[in-house]
C-alpha cells in the first residue's frame, strides 16, 4: 500500500529483516552479503536499510534488508519494523548462550506482530568460524529449529560461509509464500477492498 509508484517494471521486492541480540553479527552478515566485506570493528546498529538487485533462480528480484538493533534499548521500536517484514533471519552467536536464548523472545515477538505461524523464518547460528569457542551445541540449535519447524543454518560472516545461502533460502521461502497468497487472493480480494472502503468511511 505504501509502495511508491515508480516507472518501469520493478522486479519483485522481498523484505528481509535481521533480528537477534546485540553483537551476534547481523550487520556483519548483511554487509558481507551486500558488499562482500567483513567489518571488524563493532558499532551498534540502530536501524539500517539495504536494498539491491539479485538474481534468484534466474529471476531478477530486489532484496530489501532491514538490519535492526539488537540492543534492548530499541526493543520498543521493533514492533513497527517487524510489521513490514516478509521474512526474518533470526541470528544468534554460537559462542554466546544468551543470544541463543534470546531467539525465543524474538520468535515470539515476530509471531505476535505478524500473527502468522508460517512466516518465512530462518534460524541462523553465526560466528561458525569460532568453533573452538562454541557454547551452543549444534544439537540444541537444531532441536529448537525443528520444534519451530524452521531451517537452521550455521554461518560465518567472516569466512562468508553460508552467507548467501541463508539470504537466498529465505528469499525462496518468501517467494513461495507470495505465490501461495496470490493463488488464494481470488477468494480474499473482496475482503481487501472492503477493508479499504471501511477505512475511507472512517476518515
Amino acid at each position: 500500500m505504501s509502495k511508491k509508484p515508480s516507472g518501469g517494471v520493478q522486479p519483485a521486492l522481498h523484505k528481509v529483516i535481521m533480528v537477534g541480540s546485540g553483537g551476534v553479527g547481523k550487520s556483519a552478515l548483511t554487509l558481507q552479503f551486500m558488499y562482500d566485506e567483513f567489518v571488524e570493528d563493532y558499532e551498534p546498529t540502530k536501524a539500517d536499510s539495504y536494498r539491491k538487485k539479485v538474481v534468484l533462480d534466474g529471476e531478477e528480484v530486489q532484496i530489501d534488508i532491514l538490519d535492526t538493533a539488537g540492543q534492548e534499548d530499541y526493543a520498543a521500536i521493533r514492533d513497527n519494523y517487524f510489521r513490514s517484514g516478509e521474512g526474518f533471519l533470526c541470528v544468534f552467536s554460537i559462542t554466546e548462550e544468551e543470544s541463543f536464548q534470546a531467539t525465543q523472545e524474538f520468535r515470539e515477538q515476530i509471531l505476535r506482530v505478524k500473527n502468522d505461524e508460517q512466516i518465512p523464518f530462518v534460524l541462523v547460528g553465526n560466528k561458525g568460524d569460532l568453533d573452538e569457542k562454541r557454547k551452543v551445541p549444534l544439537a540444541d540449535a537444531q532441536s529448537r529449529a525443528h520444534h519451530w519447524q524452521v531451517p537452521y543454518v550455521e554461518t560465518s560472516a567472516k569466512t562468508r560461509d553460508n552467507v548467501d545461502k541463508v539470504f537466498f533460502d529465505l528469499m525462496r521461502e518468501i517467494r513461495s509464500r507470495k505465490m501461495e497468497e496470490n493463488k488464494m487472493s481470488n477468494g480474499r480480494g473482496k475482503d481487501k477492498s472492503k477493508r479499504k472502503k471501511l477505512r475511507c468511511a472512517l476518515l
Binding site: S27, L31, M34, Y35, T45, K46, A47, D48, S49, Y50, R51, K52, L66, D67
Partner: peptide, 9 residues
C-alpha cells in the same frame, strides 16, 4: 546507493 545506516535520524 544501496545501503544506509541508520535509515532514520
Amino acid at each position: 546507493v544501496t545501503g544506509i545506516s541508520p535509515k532514520e535520524g
